[in-house]
Design a protein around this nucleic acid. Structure first.
Ligand code: FES
Ligand code: FES
Lengths: 157, 157
DNA sequence: AAATATCCTACTAAATACCTATGAATATAG
DNA sequence: CTATATTCATAGGTATTTAGTAGGATATTT
């Protein structure tokens, strides 16, 4: 359950890459991140439509972040690749449920939606792109903010 | 995204029904809850295998909860119908990722898994089956809001 | 014995996820 | 100006998962 589509995983990996290199072509990112080229092209098209990426065409063109990674929330990314979080249709439209009149599970789904939304909106692209500290290469701390504070600036190979 | 399969929605609706009527046949639940009979039969088979339901065959048989609804967590239900929460394969096995050596997004996925797990494990079937007060037929009860906040705080601890 | 349940195995249908193919439009380097 | 490298647009195709059906065997009560 809650399997995240590869599309979104690819999107995040590619965005992290762009944080580091500032600007790059789809082809180069696809190769270094081992993502199918044409698929990534389509994904970037979506991310651009969502206002997360800017592009330059032509010989020395490429993609770059449309704004600073501190201002890109993971909820923005997920929304761009997959649309709104909607555990069940009725969180948007209670009239769908056949027993909507007094439907009990609805509260539960709304709570789930809020929980996931809150988490996704609490993590920025910049935090994900922070280098890993030696301590948490295996077992990461659940709190990304603490990681980013504790993380050193050194690079790992 | 995070669309919950109808299988799980059906399971929860049916379980809530069983909280209220104590014991019932698949046919009767399927009819009153508007769930396809044969599908619900298969779902109940899974829930029984998971130890959430007990059954009696024969003329006046039927299904009933295997234990008190206060002791049935929503994480139990979801696990029974869909297996473990696993946003990406690498949360279980980091060796899958092509760049697992220093994979940055992995922390993020682990945090998501923790957040969802915590929420699902914080709500019992008994709570979902609580009757709705007139005020919160539309908006979710403060009770479940507090639950989602608690889940988030747990993640921040 | 008849009726009413769960239980079991297999199958189909629909939806989604994942990826590919083709090529036009655009900008740059030389 | 031309060759080349890039984004952009559209139209598919395959594999997997989800959702649901079909038919009957097995157990229990009346
Ligand atoms: S309104 Fe959503 S299951 Fe009833
Ligand atoms: S280890 Fe999961 S995306 Fe890299």
């Amino acid at each position: 359950m809650f399997q995240v589509p590869t599309k979104t995983q690819y999107a995040i990996r590619a965005l992290v890459h762009l944080v580091q290199v500032k600007t790059a072509s789809v082809a180069s990112i696809a190769e270094t991140e081992r993502i199918p080229f044409k698929y990534l092209e389509a994904i970037f098209s979506q991310l651009k439509s969502a206002g997360l990426l800017s592009a330059d065409r032509g010989r020395s063109g490429g993609y770059r972040l449309a704004r600073e990674p501190e201002l890109i929330l993971m909820s923005d990314v997920v929304k761009a690749t997959e649309g709104d979080i909607r555990p069940v249709e009725c969180v948007d439209d209670a009239s769908i449920c056949t027993v909507a009149e007094g439907c009990l599970p609805r509260r539960f789904w709304l709570g789930l939606k809020r929980t996931v939304d809150a988490y996704l909106a609490s993590v920025t692209l910049a935090e994900i792109a922070e280098p890993l500290s030696p301590r948490n290469r295996i077992e990461p701390s659940p709190q990304l903010n603490e990681i980013s504070i504790a993380a050193k600036k050194e690079h790992h190979s």
